[in-house]
Simulated assay, not measured.
Amino acid sequence: MISTFKRLTAMARAYAHHPDPRVAAANMISLLVASNQPFYPLYLWWLMSADITAAWFTFLSTPFFLAVPAVARRNSIAGRALLPLAGIGNTVLSAWLFGTASAVEIFLVPCGIIALLLFRPHERVFSLALTALAFGVFLLLHDTYGQPLALYDATEYAALARLNLVSASMLTAFVTILFSGILAQAERSADATGHKKAG
């Protein structure tokens, strides 16, 4: 069991590996999200209701998250762009499935943050376009979803909203810590280069 887990972990790391740290970060985030998606129906069942039918539709986005590293190997920009696009698409789908009372639209915030961090200054057009899409989706679609597929009572919606708020906050924290590490590594490399030149 442990050896199987180690092999799977090694395979995931190899799949996510990329010499470009921003691409590697996108790959890691995408695999983290994909690996957590199977637990979402369990969270709903445990916190709210035995009726978790709507949750199974969220797996429609899983292939897109899993495809990020493969796409990034062919085209770095396309691979990085696919991550926030998959996140935005999954958020829109979830808002239709569970309704805006579920507060699932909060995931548009980390989608926008990820889009801003994944691209370099000369690629800013992509980051700004994806961030604008994330917040445009909220502004334009928030009141247009209609009757959700899943209906819950006020207590259940409160539990679902807490789950989504905590999950989005944890994702945002993970992303910022990840990019803080990338920045620290860049600073160490710059310091090392400066010392070599000074020597």
Rank of each mutant, 00 (worst) to 15 (best):
L32E: 10
L93R: 01
L85N: 10
A26D: 05
P69Y: 11
A54I: 03
A115H: 06
F119M: 10
F39H: 10
A70V: 14
S49K: 05
L66R: 07
F64W: 03
F119Q: 04
A50T: 14
A10R: 12
A67R: 01
L116D: 01
A24I: 09
L47Y: 03
A81Q: 06
P84E: 01
G87W: 02
G89C: 03
A12G: 04
S61C: 03
R120K: 14
A115I: 02
L44N: 04
A95T: 05
A25K: 00
D20Q: 01
H18A: 11
P21D: 03
T9G: 14
V92R: 12
L66H: 03
F107I: 09
G99L: 05
S76N: 12
F39W: 11
Q37C: 15
V104Y: 08
H18N: 13
F98N: 05
L47G: 10
L44K: 09
A16P: 00
F119V: 05
R13D: 13
T58Q: 04
L8M: 14
A70Q: 15
L42V: 12
G99Y: 02
V92F: 12
L8Q: 14
N75I: 00
G79E: 04
E105I: 09
L44R: 02
G79C: 07
A26H: 09
S76Y: 11
I77W: 07
D20C: 03
F119C: 04
A78F: 09
I114S: 02
L108M: 02
A24D: 12
N90L: 14
F65I: 09
T58A: 08
R22F: 09
G112D: 06
T62M: 04
D51T: 10
